[in-house]
Design a protein around this nucleic acid. Structure first.
Lengths: 333, 333
DNA sequence: GCAACGTGTGAGAACGTTCCCAACCACGGG
DNA sequence: CCCGTGGTTGGGAACGTTCTCACACGTTGC
């Protein structure tokens, strides 16, 4: 024990911790001893007594998904700048995994949590934490009835806008390619899609609403399917980047020309979308900021902010690129 | 305190922890009380005494980079399956940040560390940990003189093979697009590039070796530069996925046809590389497995394996796609 | 010259577990 | 009837900090 080098534990702690008052001589002596012995403070013991671990938990569906990776980076940057570390868990959109993760993180006494909740229902495990004093911020998705801040994007509006764009180009057969399970965001995007159709006076065709398994292959085959209909889609709106990839690849495979025969609008802007031919029109999300503001909000809570829970809605940008064009002229049989 | 519900802390701990011997009646009573009071064990206190946190630290350059994201996923999956949590830190290839991160993680008493070291030199902060009993596994990169396992890829061979492929197609002006700072992996890839040239009997032209700042834009302009030489490159070999993106975009911008005028070989296979036209020939790395085996190795160390440090070299795969073709016929002036 | 005050220091409690040890009980064998 | 044994339980130390409190000084002000 470094304390064996002259002074009491209390004094050594003061010298090392830089609080209380210590004489310069003692401070130096302690510093020297600590250096010599290679002393490293034990954060666990400190956390026990201070009640704060300077660690926040982050639960996302899958860190490998560029969306979450970027959001995580936003979280990590803000957290790190404030002296916090990030404990990361992948939930794979599985409520049970998420529940277990939240529990474990709580037991590890994270100071707060940022969660992209898998399920919109039974968020009881999420609601429990704020009650126990561990603040939680919902990322990207909202769970009704939870006493927590949420940082989201206006998915409905973004989807409406995308559909409006396509309808404005004369498209009447607009497909929606989303994934099974209907996470909260996708529900909103579906809602926006339906509203968009309504505003454009277009009918809803169940056959154009495709819910693919969450894999590239499934997205590809759903795309092919929707293009192989008797009255095929002339435009495809996807609800996330994996579906965008599938839609693009599926369209390629059918040999349809983009945008002359099929238009594509993706959700979430990734780097490859501009080097692909044609580049893809997308709803760009402020992904990094989503994570960063979630962290900022959480830090505010940790700093004592106990105002009512807020839901912050960040702006999306609709970026028109080459993948959308006028609907092909109807060659009515 | 849940213990206030009938028994001593010792007994309650036994009942909850499932060790020692407890009568069924007491076990039930404790379980009921814990349930009723919503008792959650405090892992910090447990860790203090057991000396294990069931947490491993992961230090990567940037979680937003698909390579690290995927490797991280591999780490997380293996760790999680064994009941470990992952504390993530981005170093941004900055040795100082990395050093601070390692120190903080150590103070938080992670059971072990997986680090993709930024710098090949002065790994003193890395060497210190094993000496203190905290095992560390090097990911993707090796640091000489460190008493630690390492999970890497045979970068030299992979690069040689890529160059061999291009030389075999008749290319004599093969550029290398890498990033500044020359991380260990890139040094190896550069070495492989040089060896490849040597084996093919090609001269080394300094003007063809480009070290770009680590941004997409820089990669693009270096690509443009190398294609604008008096005696331009007819092939470009990149050393990571960001450089690949830049090379592809840069080539597009110059209007050069791929592969008829310029061939491209990328390092690290990403999803977009097959939907881009032409699809890109790459050295595919077992990225997920890199992370997964690093975690496996670390867990083995934590389980008591104290054999000599191993360096595991995983196999890369060379995937020929459309971006490489015969060198254009020399129109000598 | 004495009270009041401030600075520097140490003793010891506390955080919530796990673990070691001792005590207790019932039971069975000698 | 007594003793040993094994299962069950509680007491208390320990982990390494922080924090409160008390005390020993020296200095200042009246």
């Amino acid at each position: 024990m470094a304390k064996a080098a002259g002074v009491s534990t209390a004094t050594a702690a003061r010298a090392l911790g830089g609080y209380g008052s210590v004489s310069p001589a003692v401070r130096d002596r302690v510093a020297e001893a600590a250096e010599r012995l290679g002393y490293r403070r034990n954060s666990l013991a400190r956390s026990m007594i201070t009640g704060t671990t300077h660690t926040i938990g982050l639960v996302v569906a899958d860190i490998e998904n560029p969306f979450f990776a970027r959001a995580a980076r936003g979280v990590a940057d803000v957290a790190h700048a404030a002296g916090y570390e990030v404990l990361l868990v992948n939930s794979d959109e599985d409520p049970a995994t998420e529940r277990a993760a939240v529990r474990t993180l709580f037991e590890k006494r994270v100071d707060g949590l940022i969660v992209a909740p898998a399920s919109t229902d039974v968020g009881s495990h999420l609601g429990e934490l704020p009650r126990r004093g561990t603040p939680i911020v919902l990322l990207d998705r909202v769970v009704p009835g939870i006493d927590a801040d949420a940082i989201v994007v206006d998915n409905e509006r973004a989807a409406r806008r995308a559909i409006g764009h396509l309808a404005g180009l004369g498209h009447r057969r607009i497909a929606l390619l989303t994934s099974q399970g209907l996470v909260h965001t996708n529900q909103m995007r579906l809602a926006g899609y339906l509203q968009g159709l309504g505003q454009a006076g277009l009918p809803v065709d169940e056959g154009l609403i495709r819910m693919a398994e969450y894999t590239r292959e499934a997205a590809v085959s759903e795309t092919e399917a929707v293009l192989a209909l008797d009255d095929p889609a002339t435009a495809i709106f996807t609800t996330d980047n994996l579906m965008s990839l599938g839609a693009f690849e599926g369209t390629q495979r059918t040999g349809r020309a983009v945008p002359d025969e099929v238009s594509i609008v993706g959700f979430d802007d990734l780097e490859w979308m501009t080097i692909v031919r044609p580049p893809i029109t997308v709803v760009a999300q402020p992904t990094y900021e989503l994570g960063a503001t979630a962290a900022t909000r959480l830090l505010a809570r940790l700093a004592g902010d106990d105002g009512p829970p807020q839901t912050l809605m960040l702006e999306t940008t609709f970026i028109v690129r080459g993948s959308t064009g006028p609907a092909p002229v109807r060659t009515t049989a």
